[in-house]
């Protein structure tokens, strides 16, 4: 039973990885055309990948990270980004902050400040409270997710 489940998960992971690779190519071309906001939207689409697979999560994070770092005009980006993406973006900002990498943290904090003004404290709370799609709690939550 558990083995079959694991197999399905692995198949699913392959599909997700393929999708992320496709996304990466699209984002690279958007960045070449100086459309960083479009790139970020593309990166956030289909996120979180809804999987426990760490490989998928990391792959998706690399794509989103690439798009986040290309953002120069934060206000412009946020006003053209659909509010439904705010929660997802916030989650990735915290992931960025957790890397401890100086340029990444600088960029994430810059966006975090502006995003909080727009999306409110509720957005931060939803990010902190989400124990399924954030990195921190994978260990304790693996069991819980299994029953979904």
């Amino acid at each position: 039973m558990a083995g079959a489940e694991g197999h399905v998960e692995a198949d699913n992971a392959e599909a997700i990885i393929t999708r992320i690779e496709h996304k990466t190519r699209k984002i690279e071309s958007l960045l070449k055309q100086y459309k960083p906001v479009e790139a970020l939207k593309t990166a956030l689409e289909g996120s979180p990948p809804m999987t426990r697979d760490e490989r998928c999560k990391s792959a998706n994070w690399i794509v989103v990270h690439r798009a986040i770092m290309a953002i120069k005009d934060v206000d412009g980006m946020l006003s053209s980004l659909d509010p439904e993406y705010y929660d997802i973006l916030m989650k990735y900002l915290y992931r960025g902050l957790s890397t401890g990498d100086r340029p990444t943290c600088d960029q994430c904090l810059r966006i975090h400040e502006k995003l909080t003004v727009r999306a409110g404290l509720g957005c931060i709370l939803r990010c902190l409270a989400d124990t399924v799609n954030t990195e921190r709690s994978t260990g304790s939550c693996a069991k819980k997710v299994g029953s979904f």
Binding site: L121, G122, C123
Partner: peptide, 14 residues
């Protein structure tokens, strides 16, 4: 058996 659910997010504290 089949409830209809809605979630509403808001921008303030819980």
């Amino acid at each position: 058996p089949s409830p209809l659910a809605q979630n509403v997010t808001f921008r303030d504290l819980p």
